[in-house]
């Protein structure tokens, strides 16, 4: 219980830190936040008098700490201000974009996990050293592959050459396939690297030899024993993987012209729409921290060995 509270406290500090850092970066660093409130091409035509009034209306003429406290209190109530481009409240803009990205990310996560698992499984199952090395060289390739290039290649092959799927992702399942694959492949790289390493260490464990000596086949040993022990530690990467999915969505949604958090981010950065950018930072930080918290708290339940250790440490 103490352990959970400690983790929760840490999580809250990170979220608060993300808010503070994004406030400093986005509201205090630019010479004038008011200028950022206008689209870049309209900035030259701002009337100085109106500029002063705007500064006063938004409260940017007040001391920085006062602005900070106000924004923090508003953020605690879920108010991150309004978008400069559309005038929509930030929460609403994010809320509208989120479901699309969640569907995309969930599909990509399932595909990525399956892909990474099969790479690790096959690379351990094969007896031929040459084939094994060939499969083991796939994860480093995936990690090095520029995700925007991958998206373009997928569009070129499956939309333009084969005509199986539309190049612009609309609604429905058919439009989801290509973006999900394009997002899954780069995300599967780090997972596959981790799983491959775990599979190899677990496969070298004495219990595998014991199972062999009992007459179990290699496939069964891998499925019933190695798979479980090797894939559980991947859960600890949960937060990072969710972050990768959200970051990857920026590229994927841009390439496939799909609405979602990624497109919203890209548009907001392009228009220097500060409130939206801060809202997205907070969304991502909260997702990361929540997933990590859940993993941290539930992991000892899944892996009883850790439970014993954490008890031993706190006692």
């Amino acid at each position: 219980m103490n352990y959970a509270l400690l983790k929760l406290g840490r999580a809250l500090i990170v979220v608060w830190g993300a808010f503070t850092a994004s406030f400093i970066l986005l509201y205090l660093m630019p010479a004038s936040p008011i200028e950022l409130l206008f689209p870049p091409n309209e900035r030259a035509s701002i009337d100085p008098q109106a500029f002063k009034e705007m500064e006063h209306a938004y409260g940017f003429d007040r001391p920085a700490w006062q602005q900070y406290v106000d924004r923090l209190l508003a953020a605690l109530h879920g108010d991150f201000g309004t978008s400069v481009g559309t005038g929509q409240p930030v929460i609403k803009a994010i809320g509208e974009a989120l479901p699309n990205t969640v569907i995309l990310a969930a599909c990509a996560l399932v595909l990525a996990s399956l892909f990474a698992l099969s790479i690790a499984w096959v690379a351990t199952y094969l007896e031929s050293a040459r084939l094994r090395n060939l499969i083991s060289s796939v994860p480093p390739l995936l990690v090095s592959f520029p995700s925007f290039l991958l998206g373009l290649i997928i569009i070129k092959v499956f939309s333009f050459q084969l005509g199986w799927f539309p190049p612009i992702s609309g609604e429905g399942l058919r439009g989801l396939v290509l973006p999900a694959v394009a997002l899954a492949i780069p995300v599967s790289g780090p997972i596959a690297q981790l799983l491959l390493r775990n599979f190899q260490t677990e496969y070298a464990s004495p219990y595998v030899l014991t199972s062999y000596s009992k007459g179990t086949r290699k496939g069964k040993v891998l499925n019933t024993e190695v798979l479980r022990n090797a894939s559980l530690p991947a859960l600890t990467q949960g937060g990072i993987i969710v972050g990768e999915l959200l970051a990857g969505a920026v590229i994927t949604e841009t390439i496939f012209s799909r609405a979602g958090i990624g497109r919203l981010t890209e548009d907001a950065v392009r228009a220097q729409d500060v409130p939206i950018v801060q809202g997205i930072v907070m969304l991502v930080a909260v997702c990361f921290v929540t997933v990590n918290f859940i993993v941290d708290v539930s992991y000892p339940l899944v892996d009883p060995r850790l439970k014993a250790v954490s008890k031993g440490v706190t006692a």
Partner: peptide
């Protein structure tokens, strides 16, 4: 921890929107 809580590409984009 805070720097790590926002994945690389997004963090980079946020900094670019300030700079």
């Amino acid at each position: 921890d805070v720097l790590l809580s926002v994945p690389g590409l997004l963090l980079t984009m946020v900094i670019v929107s300030a700079l």
